[in-house]
Amino acid sequence: MKNLMKTSVAALALTVGANAAAAEGNLVLYHWFEYMPQEVLDKFTAETGIEVTMDTYDSNEAMLASLKAGAIGTYDLAVPSDYMVSIMGSEGMLDTIADGELHNKGNIAPEWVDVSFDPGRQSSIPYQWGSTSFSVNRDVYAGEIQTTDILFNPPAELQGRINMLDSQGDVTALASLHLGIPQCSSDREQLKALNDLLQGAKAHWASFNSDTAKEVLVSGDAAAGMIYDGFNSKAREEGANVEYAFPTQGYIAWMDNVVLLKDAPNRDSALKFMDFLLEPENIAAITNYAAYNAGVTGVSEFLDPALAAQPEKNPHADAGNGVFIQVCDEATQAVYDQIWTNLKK
């Protein structure tokens, strides 16, 4: 008991000490979980003296909801995916970066400059890009996995042992690929089919969880699960015998972007951080950590050579196309929201 108390007192003393450190500036970052190595933040602080505070979220939608509920104006930067950049833009949540404000803007890889969700990169810079699909524990199921049937019409070995991402956009997009219908369909038959497909498949799913998408595969709680490509290579590193699938029906492609939020309390620090992330060496450190791909020129010399050879980075010849998630209009979205609620009821 005495020791415990000592520990607690020590904990308090330490926290007081930690907060006493004066900062030359602050930066408040709203970021995905497990997506930013602490060393990169420490390096930024060492270079600029700016202290970084980071909050994390587990889905684009959760981030948007939180900003809408009053958090806008308290964060400087967020890291939405492609489609969410468009949504945030239309919601007026993004600040415009004037010409010349970002010194390293020229480092953005040419193919990622004029992107549909932010033409000319007015408010965003590339963070990482990759794919979302699913992987299967090969100890449990040895059969064919390059098909979305694994999720929506699973073989007996996998039934009841599948984890889905708790993300409406990712699940409905993959289900649409499975059915071969557009993502923002207004065709009633297609929407009904989508609804029925998800209702039927739900019986085979164990859980909806994005945060533990990797953990459930590593621990064996799930035998198959939707997952991001880099997350899957981490799962393999942690000992799971999981194979990432590039289904013939297609898979989800995405790019996460660092955006400058409207009313950012530390706008200058935010721009400095964006410049910092456009340095090939820094963004490469993140790529090496997260095992995705950077959208900056000149990163290759800093990248871990093993990364390029990973199976998650090399779709097989029969793989379908990678498609970006689309933004639907309000009326169409209402139907998809209803389908999602039906699914989770």
Partner: peptide
Amino acid sequence: AGVETLPTAIFGSVKQG
């Protein structure tokens, strides 16, 4: 923004396992 208490910080961590 950036304000965590122990329970929210723990929740953020345990959500990933």
